[in-house]
Amino acid sequence: MKLRTRPLIALAALFGLCLSVPAFAQLDAEAAENIFKENDCHKCHHATKAKKGPSLKKIAAKYKEKKLDEKEAIKHMTAGQKVKLDDGKEEDHKIIDTKDVKVQTNVARWMLSH
């Protein structure tokens, strides 16, 4: 009996770990892109070309170079920090309209995958 329950307990524990640690969740690109666009992030950030804000490709390269991860990206999209634009003006960065860390993480990972 014990031999049968141990693997099940281990499996349940592993499953629970997957749910509770979003960093290990598989990237859902479609869901991330949808949240990104629902929040109008695409109006300033294009995948490859510069708009009002830098492209996702450029952001991803910068994060890689500076060894930053999705936590920094989440901070950027949730803190409403001032951002400096090309014309020198500063503006409050839009805050993503979700407090769900899993969703935020998925969006951040998708952005940094460019």
Binding site: E38, H42, K43, H46, K51
Partner: peptide, 10 residues
């Protein structure tokens, strides 16, 4: 800015 393929729908 509003240049997504499904911008109007969204």
């Amino acid at each position: 800015c509003h240049d997504d393929a499904k911008e109007e729908q969204r």
